[in-house]
Amino acid sequence: MKTIQSLFFYSFAFLLIFSCQSDDDALSQPGLDATTYYQELNVSYGPDGDQKYDIYLPANRNMDTNVMILIHGGGWSAGDKAEMNEVKDALLNEFPNMGIVNMNYRLADAENGPYPMQLNDITTVINKLKSDQNYYVIDNDFGFIGTSAGGHLALLWSYAFDISSDVSMVCSIVGPTNLADPFYLESDIPEIQGLIALFVMDASVAYLEEVSPLNRVTASAPPTLLFYGGVDPLVPVSQGTDLHNKLDNLGVTNEFTLYPNGGHGWIGPDLVDTTVKLKAFIQTHFN
């Protein structure tokens, strides 16, 4: 699992193309100079060492400057925001007026499941950005791009946790959407069993449905962009097609792309197609 995802991240990154400050310090200082570019790495948003994000803000920004949040993959139990750095760089190049937050979140283990822990981390980041809106000089309008497990988290938060309708778009690249799928429940593949075991602290199907974006999406969901591979060993095609069909039935704006020869990630012409479609979707729904 980790090897497959690492290959995906590196191929995606290759072709898809300062210090910490306390909350009290940020709130006590006047707003940043919005005429200049600003970045801050490893901003702490909680007591855990994994609760950090990097923020990149464009020059000449204003209170209408949107912020895209990047969420890395890693099977909910591994990975790091550094894996999304090349994605961040590509976005900064293509959308120089956009703010970007590249976040880490607490990783799951045998005693700490992904749900709701990792969703709570996203909520904390959103709330911090909103409370520091005047300091950073940004809008409270957010988008998500998540890969693999990060795609699942981006979808689930956007569909079930965004009570203030702060999300304008969400993109999931090979993100699982239905953990109650027999593909997961009946799998004899150790890697798949290990992933599902992170969630099955309550072994009921109802619990797995609760943590599945497919079962939490409503007609108020934000525009959604989905990318899946036809030979993905970890996320079957049905994870994408079922959500796409449900979004259509609900009348939610969405785009779905299946790469028949793609696995848990892809390279070459398919990846070029992904970048073109992602750019167009952002321009339409977020720029």
Score class of each variant (00 low, 15 high):
M1G: 08
T3G: 01
S6R: 12
L7S: 07
L15P: 01
L16F: 09
I17L: 11
C20Y: 14
L27N: 09
L27F: 11
L32S: 12
L32C: 10
D33K: 12
Y38L: 01
L41Y: 10
N42L: 13
Y45I: 12
G46A: 04
D50Q: 15
Q51F: 07
Q51W: 09
Y53C: 11
I55V: 15
L57M: 08
L57S: 04
L57F: 07
R61I: 08
M63K: 15
T65R: 08
M68F: 07
M68D: 01
H72E: 06
G73C: 02
G73E: 00
G75T: 09
A78K: 04
A82W: 01
N85D: 15
K88S: 09
K88W: 00
A90V: 02
L91N: 03
L92Q: 14
G99Y: 09
V101R: 00
L107P: 10
A110R: 14
N112D: 02
G113L: 04
P114C: 03
P116M: 02
L119G: 03
T123H: 14
T123E: 13
I126R: 06
N127Y: 09
K128F: 06
S131D: 14
D132H: 15
Y135S: 11
Y135L: 01
Y136W: 12
Y136V: 02
D141F: 10
G143P: 05
G146W: 01
G150L: 07
L153D: 06
L153Q: 05
S158Q: 00
Y159C: 07
F161H: 14
F161S: 12
I163C: 08
S164W: 02
M169L: 13
M169C: 03
I173N: 04
P176Y: 00
D181V: 08
P182V: 12
P190V: 00
Q193F: 03
G194I: 10
A197T: 12
A197G: 07
V200F: 11
V200D: 15
M201S: 14
M201W: 12
D202I: 05
A206K: 08
L208P: 04
V211L: 00
S212M: 04
R216I: 00
V217F: 05
A219P: 03
P223N: 06
L225P: 00
L226E: 01
G230D: 00
G240P: 03
D242N: 14
H244P: 00
H244W: 12
N245I: 04
K246A: 10
D248I: 13
N249V: 11
T257N: 12
L258T: 06
Y259D: 05
Y259V: 14
H264D: 02
G265M: 01
W266Q: 02
W266A: 11
P269C: 04
D270W: 01
L271S: 08
V276I: 14
L278K: 00
K279L: 04
A280L: 13
T284K: 15
F286D: 01
N287T: 03
